[in-house]
Amino acid sequence: MVGLALVVLFALPLVIVIWHGLGADFISHISTPTALQALRLSLITSLISLGICIFFGTPLAYGLARWRFRGQHLLETLTDLPVVLPPAVAGVALLLTFGRRGALGPWLAEWGIALPFTTAAVIMAQVFVAAPFYVRTARLGFAAIDRHFEETALVEGANAWQIFSKIMLPLAARPILSGIILAWTRALGEFGATIMFAGNLEGVSQTMPLAIYIGFERNSEIALALSIVLITLSGSLMYLLRVVEDQSKQE
C-alpha cells in the first residue's frame, strides 16, 4: 500500500499531461511545422544513433563478455558510467573535446569539420548517453550463454565468426533486443547533452525533448502534444521490453 504513493507520483502527472494535451486540439498542434520537424528529427537521429550503438556496441559487448584481460573492470565501469552520469556532464565533456575550442576542435576545423550545433552533434550526444544501455544489456546477454554451446560449435568445426553469427548472436537475441529498446528510448528522451553540445536549432538539432522545453515557454500546447507523443512512444517501447523479458524468462 505504501508503494502506491510512488505509483501515484509516476502516474498522476502523466495522466494530467495526457488530459490537458488531448483536450487542447491535439491533432492541430502536432501538425504544426515545429512539432513535425522535431518529431522527424528525433526519429531520424535516434535511429541513426541506435544503428551506431548496435554496430560498434555489439562487438564491444561480445569482447567484454568473453575475454578476460587486464583492465577489464575498468573498461566495463567506463562503458557503464554514462548511465549514471548527468547528461549535462556529457554535454560539457563533448564540448570540451569536440567543440570549436575543444581539444580536437582545431584539428577537426582543419578538415573543415565543425561539430557543435549540427545534427551530427545531436547524434553524438545520443550515442554517448544511449550506448551504455545497449552495451551493458548485450554484454550480460552474451555472458549468460553457457560455454558448452560455444565449445560444441567449435568441435563441429565452426570458426570464430561462424560461432558469433550462427550461435552466440541468435542465443543472445532477446537481451540484444532489450538493449536496443532501452538504448532507443534513452536516445529519444535525450535532452541535457544535446542542448549543450548541439544547441536548439529548429530542423537541425531541435529534437522532441528540446522542442518541449522551448515550446513550454512559448506555446505550451505544442509542448503538451509532443509530450504525449513521447509518452506513448516510450511507453510502448517499455511495454515491448516487458514482453521480450517475459518471453526470455519462459525459455
Binding site: 553457457d146 558448452h148 565449445e151 560444441t152 541468435p170 542465443l171 525459455e251
Partner: peptide, 19 residues
C-alpha cells in the same frame, strides 16, 4: 585448433543449440 581436430564431443548439459 579444436575446430580442425578430427574429434567430436558430447557434453553433459547445454548440448543442443536451443534456437
Amino acid at each position: 585448433p579444436p575446430n580442425k581436430r578430427p574429434t567430436a564431443m558430447v557434453f553433459q548439459k547445454y548440448t543442443l543449440w536451443p534456437h
